[in-house]
Design a protein around this nucleic acid. Structure first.
Lengths: 117, 117
DNA sequence: TTTATATATGCCGATAAAGGAATATGTAAA
DNA sequence: TTTACATATTCCTTTATCGGCATATATAAA
């Protein structure tokens, strides 16, 4: 078996770097597909495909206006990712603390060494 | 071309659901590979491979003790993911705020309607 | 030294993903 | 209606990934 389908999973959807760029680009304003193509220097079919994936997992919204379609990032879609990552937050503070303590311990040891000489 | 290699990218590494499980399992204590195999009901080679990927992107640490290897999650490795997701945080608050305001507006309207009757 | 245990790696087959190019669809302008 | 523009989809090829199985390596116990 290969990897779980991108279509059904936010984690997989954002695993692709271009899709992350697209999400950032569409974060503050809605934009037509052409803008994404021009700004991020991607081929139009490629952009349409990425937007399709993002849409399927609920990471972008679309609004049609005439022959244009305006896409915009649905920030709430990122929450599962953020929440998951937050689980680790308190641990990395702990680890930083431990690293700091260790560094201070080493600094004191170095001072003692310096005095001996 | 296919997707960027998992090995070089935290986003890709955590795109795999089993690897996310492993990271959570190894978060609070270090554990030998066998524990992961037993607890998460995976084949041993599969676990070793996942651990290899996680190790290559800096998401786990190993300590050898005799013939055992103790793995533990390196929480700091998750930070890039968390930071990236945080970029979207203020936008989803905004959107939630707007939803809330709209809901309150509707509640007031409903009250007015109720009084008229 | 032989044997058992713990872990890692290599190979294979199936599946999926991504880019490219062509084409289809859908809407507006002429 | 024809033409132009905007976007989506399809087909094809290449590459990656994952699981399964067998096997290799490393260390401890007998």
């Amino acid at each position: 078996m290969a990897r779980a389908a991108t279509t059904s999973d936010v984690f997989n959807a954002v695993a692709e770097p271009r899709r992350r760029e697209i999400l950032l680009f569409l974060l503050d304003r809605e934009r037509p597909v052409t803008d994404v193509v021009d700004e991020l220097q991607l081929d139009q079919p490629s952009v349409s495909k990425h937007l399709r994936v993002l849409r399927d997992v609920g990471l972008v919204r679309v609004r049609r206006d005439g022959r244009h379609k305006y896409y915009r990032t649905r920030a709430e879609g990122i929450r599962p990712l953020h929440d998951w990552a937050s689980t680790f937050e308190r641990y990395w503070s702990h680890q930083l603390l431990r690293v700091k303590e260790r560094a201070e311990g080493m600094a004191r040891a170095a001072e003692r060494d310096a005095k001996k000489k």
